[in-house]
Amino acid sequence: MDSTRRITALEAVPEESTFVFRVVDTDDDANEVEEAILVRQDGRLECWLNYCQHFTHIKLDKGTGAAMRNGEIICENHGAYFEADSGVCTFGPCEGAYLTALEVAVDDGDVYLTDEGYDLLGPGPIPTDEVDRASSSNVEF
């Protein structure tokens, strides 16, 4: 595998939370930086863009791992639940919507971005000096 597309070691992806990293959409002329999350559960690994389908400016993982319960990722702003393995919203204001998937692969204990539509920028959230005031309230229900 291409070492420039290595996201992290598989063992660094928590079982009951998420691992956040940065990508850039190569199909987008604006080359906007986005965040993606890895979810590892029951031997499976999935990758989703890091935003709620209700309001896409709300992140599921705010930099310390997304909340999870019974195999579902929880949007702490809206109370939406997303199945970690399929990305479908099973409860909340965006019920029936799907998280946006990115392709990843595991090779020799490491996780690689294999989605040709994105370039890997590195681990961690997008650095920002701004305070995300919306991320800790439920006023957007």
Rank of each mutant, 00 (worst) to 15 (best):
M1R: 06
T4S: 12
I7L: 14
T8H: 07
L10R: 09
L10M: 11
E15P: 12
E15A: 15
S17I: 06
S17N: 12
V20N: 10
V20L: 12
V20Q: 09
F21M: 13
R22M: 15
V23D: 09
D25T: 08
D25Q: 11
T26K: 10
D27S: 15
D28A: 09
D28P: 02
V33P: 10
E34I: 05
E34W: 08
E35H: 07
L38Q: 11
V39E: 15
V39G: 14
R40E: 15
G43H: 08
L45H: 11
E46Y: 07
N50I: 11
N50H: 13
Q53V: 08
H54I: 09
H57W: 13
K59W: 09
D61N: 01
T64F: 04
G65K: 14
A67V: 05
N70Q: 14
G71A: 06
I74N: 05
C75P: 09
N77Q: 12
N77V: 15
Y81E: 06
Y81N: 06
F82T: 04
F82G: 02
E83Q: 14
E83W: 08
A84Y: 12
D85S: 06
S86V: 04
V88S: 06
C89L: 08
P93F: 09
C94W: 06
E95K: 13
Y98I: 07
T100M: 03
A101T: 10
L102E: 09
E103L: 05
E103D: 14
D107T: 05
V111L: 05
Y112S: 04
L113C: 05
T114I: 05
D115E: 03
L120M: 01
L121W: 03
P123C: 01
G124R: 00
P125N: 04
P127L: 02
P127S: 00
D129W: 01
D129P: 00
E130C: 00
E130R: 01
V131K: 00
D132F: 02
D132P: 00
R133Q: 03
A134M: 09
S135L: 01
S137F: 03
S137M: 01
V139E: 03
V139G: 00
E140V: 05
